[in-house]
Design a protein around this nucleic acid. Sequence first.
DNA 1: TATTTTATTTAGATATATCTAAATATATTT
DNA 2: AAATATATTTAGATATATCTAAATAAAATA
Lengths: 220, 220
Amino acid sequence: MNMTTAEENYLKAIYHLSEGGTKSVSTNDVAAEMKTKPASVSDMLRKLGDKEVIEYRKYYGVNITEEGKKRALQTIRKHRLWEVFLVDKLQFAWDEVHEVAEELEHIQSPLLIQRLDAYLNYPKFDPHGDPIPDEFGDVRARPRVALNEMEIDQTGQIVAVKDSSAAFLRYLDKVGAYIGARIKVLDKVEFDGSLEILVDQKKTLFMSKDVAANILVIQS
Amino acid sequence: MNMTTAEENYLKAIYHLSEGGTKSVSTNDVAAEMKTKPASVSDMLRKLGDKEVIEYRKYYGVNITEEGKKRALQTIRKHRLWEVFLVDKLQFAWDEVHEVAEELEHIQSPLLIQRLDAYLNYPKFDPHGDPIPDEFGDVRARPRVALNEMEIDQTGQIVAVKDSSAAFLRYLDKVGAYIGARIKVLDKVEFDGSLEILVDQKKTLFMSKDVAANILVIQS
DNA sequence: TATTTTATTTAGATATATCTAAATATATTT
DNA sequence: AAATATATTTAGATATATCTAAATAAAATA
């Protein structure tokens, strides 16, 4: 059963909106995520329901099925592998890759993805630190904490950001933080929750609690 | 002015059908090339005419415009660069790449193609020996050599004959060589200058130096 | 040149993906 | 529980890309 590009994109959005919670995803939420109108979403939900990648009850939103989850994860896998390719091989900046990967993820060729995976040396994370599902949809589990929740003297490695807007990624780049950077919390100001961070054993930088809350870290 | 995938594919087909000749390309020819019906072609020709990438006179076929040629060459450039990537980097066989490249060529990102070109070291030919247009649509002019002047292991494509007598053409046909055939020099006998040639990756044939001197090849 | 054949276009369908406006179902408030 | 507000669906458009069948133009033939 083949899916169109539009169907794949909707399914991916529904998968992301489902993550974490167990509640149904509403038509309005999907419309907001897809930057389209609820009427268009209703049409698409009926189609995705017919294909049994979601369970759709009119007026009560949708739940993604196991089959749907598997398919969404395949699309996400392709997206993230292409991002690694763009950054590692074609020298794209990590904030330039999303749009292009959004197109590349819809190329239909299992062989291509298999070969690309091997060529990139089976990466487990994309340039934003998000995990790359394997060909069965399994994702390596790795606990992540927000940087603002770490205590003084704790160390770790930046692995992802919550807000991956281009503006935020540019900011990180500018101050010398990046996905993969080793960090240590040198100080926390109790008054406003701002932090002093040591990056890669050399650069010190200050950041507000709001910024730190957007940065995800694996503790070491 | 953006073009849809379907429009790009039609334009590419029209470009290929125009190559060489100066005559108009007929609706039926385009339909055959696109494996679709003449009625669908008529609709598309009107659209491409409106966009001024072709000149369309009802019932008299189409001629591609300079703008159309430029655009077709950009699509061809992308297609061939992706083919090089698939073969050189992802170990695809040369006969497995076409379909995937057919999808990849429609990805819209000038930066991607620029970087890919650099990453592949600015290749001038694709894995089938076809030239890759540069970003301005220019194709490297390729000198033609007589087949007897090629060395062992060199590859190329038969593009012309010096002696075009019917007898010689019949001979070529009989042995399975033809204008357009991909060839590789497998061996050269020093004693009499005769050659062993691989045609289209499958057929081996022997020819005298005199015959080889009559065959013109573009090397790849 | 009139007739027949072939090529091409037009008319009218179908399917996808979207939209706006109107209708309707569910949720919230009084 | 009725009235109001919000969320969602349906109805009816538009645009793309295709198709078959019918109409028509051009080319070939008698």
